[in-house]
Design a protein around this nucleic acid. Structure first.
Length: 479
RNA sequence: CGAGGCGUAGCUCAGUUUGGUAGAGUGCUUGCUUUGGGAGCAAGAUGCCGCAGGUUCAAGUCCUGUCGCCUCGACCA
């Protein structure tokens, strides 16, 4: 019978989380593989999610005073090598262009893995006076990092992202910018993606190559693994010195400016999948869902059903809703499954019986709740249900994160906690020494995720060496 | 890059042990009947068996090489 069909079935996440993830990517028509490893086709439905992410974030960037620019995709090797830590961090995973046509290039070109060096070269040209500062730039492009192990959205060799690059007169201003943008990311994740995050600073060993400080938002996935959802870096004047960017200040002195960079990537789509998805498939937060409401006519061949369905579609579209009417001749049951798999937040069913009663059925994807709604109040009810979906999804994800966050006082306790409860966030005190950080990872398998801004003192000593602790740290297994 | 697994129809896979006409389910196309949880019947189309060599009268099957994908590690957004 129908229920035995395997083709469209999604592997249960308890059975095989990795396969569940891959199934959703394919069956929800988000991506398709290509003949180049790690380079995927982002299909229309997947790309539409990215477009919504872009649209909302871009508005937030503009609101905070940023301008979009576009840098070249190639970086000459000589330019990449100007900042020592930076090149060391990225060189192992860059792709090189060695030929132009049949001619071998004198200075080979790397395909940008990130664009700090290009922005620096540019800033050196255009920043001369304190009057030229700050420059608050951002670009939406793709970058290439030749990863060995690849997974759709989480780790691909080419990925889409935005990279903000700003340059300021003072360190204070730059630090402020770094924090501001991390907050923008956190706000976006929590409001638009209904995804709770932990804001914090990365330990020194985990800093971006060339940064003075790296901040990150960390999210916890359904399987208890952590995912870095966004980063913001403070560079101090290190890049300015390496690239010889100087300006004349008010006192007519030549000084170095201070820089930042910050980015989020299509990995956010992976985060959405693994934060909200369930065994029926994807569950999309309304703000970024390509289709917010799907209308499914029941017995659509019957007089008046399609007309009514179209009328509802027009009304919802007019009310500002992204709405789709599926009048294909697939059975209603097929359509239910299809749009559940694709994570459409709300389903509106309209059939002869409903029309007779002046109502329709509204089903929420995130909790499966089914209600009858008066057709007169359709717009209002749909709007309420969409808000309810965002709030419900956020609270559910927050509860999952809280339930999977543990405080530990000894290394053995970490091991025991992970064994008993599965992966999650471990909160533990730390002395600040890299040796201890390494030892924790080696002995328990969890790495430091971040030093949260929201500090608490739950014990006096470092979990590893027992010396006085400096801070509490979130530890976890990461994607 | 280390360890393991897998490449046969759009998809999931059988067939490989023991060489002998290329298979199933699902999907796709057409028609009719259906329609409140992946509908039914009938007819039809679809294959460089990952790629390259080799052994053989004969290779999806055996041998060698190679490429790709998946899982787990190490590295990373």
């Amino acid at each position: 019978m129908a229920k035995e069909k395997k083709v469209t079935e999604i592997t249960s996440m308890d059975e095989d989380f990795a396969q569940w993830y891959t199934d959703i990517c394919k069956k929800a028509e988000l991506v398709e593989y290509t003949s180049v490893k790690g380079c995927m086709v982002i299909r229309p439905y997947g790309y539409a999610i990215w477009e919504n992410i872009q649209r909302i974030l871009d508005a937030m960037f503009k609101d905070t005073g940023h301008e979009n620019v576009c840098m070249p995709m190639f970086i000459p090797e000589s330019l990449l090598q100007k900042e020592k830590d930076h090149v060391e961090g990225f060189a192992p995973e860059v792709a090189w262009v060695t030929h132009g046509g049949n001619e071998k290039l004198e200075d080979r070109l790397c395909v940008r893995p990130t664009s700090e060096t290009l922005f620096c070269e540019h800033y050196a040209n255009i920043v001369h006076s304190y009057r030229d500062l700050p420059k608050l730039y951002n670009q939406w492009v793709s970058v290439v990092r030749w990863e060995k192990t690849t997974r759709p959205f989480l780790r691909s060799r080419e990925f889409l992202w935005q990279e903000g690059h700003t340059i300021h007169a003072t360190a204070e201003e730059a630090v402020e910018e770094t924090e501001r943008m991390l907050n923008v990311y956190a706000e976006f994740c929590e409001n638009a993606l209904a995804m709770p995050v932990v804001k914090g600073r990365k330990t020194d060993s985990d800093k971006f190559a060339g940064a003075e400080a790296t901040y990150a938002i960390e999210a916890l996935m359904h399987d208890g693994k952590a995912l870095q959802a966004g980063t913001s870096h403070y560079f101090g004047d290190g890049f300015a010195k390496a690239f010889d960017i100087q300006y004349t200040d008010k006192e007519n002195k030549r000084v170095y400016p201070h820089q930042t960079s910050w980015g989020v990537t299509t990995r956010l789509i992976g985060a959405i999948i693994m934060t909200h998805g369930d065994n029926e498939g994807l569950v999309l937060p309304p703000a970024v869902a390509p289709v917010q409401v799907v209308i499914i006519p029941i017995a659509q061949h019957k007089e008046g059903v399609l007309e009514k369905a179209n009328e509802l579609k027009e009304r919802l579209a007019k009310a500002g809703c992204r709405v789709k009417l599926d009048d294909s001749d697939n059975s209603p049951g097929w359509k239910f499954s299809e749009y559940e798999m694709k994570g459409v937040p709300l389903r509106v069913e309209i059939g002869p019986k409903d029309i007779e009663n002046g109502q329709c059925v509204i089903v929420s994807r995130w909790n499966g709740e089914k209600v009858f709604a008066s057709l007169d109040e359709l717009e209002k009810t749909v709007a309420e249900k969409l808000i309810e979906a965002r709030d419900g999804m956020y609270n559910k994800a927050l509860e999952n994160m809280n339930n999977r966050t543990y405080f530990c006082e000894t290394m053995d306790e970490i091991t025991k906690t992970l064994e008993e409860n599965g992966d999650g966030f471990i909160k533990a005190m730390w002395c600040g020494e890299e040796a201890c950080e390494d030892e924790v990872k080696e002995k328990t398998g969890v790495g430091s995720r971040c030093i949260p801004f929201q500090q608490e003192r739950r014990a006096g000593n470092c979990i590893c060496c027992g010396k006085p602790a400096k801070c509490i740290v979130y530890w976890g297994k990461a994607y």
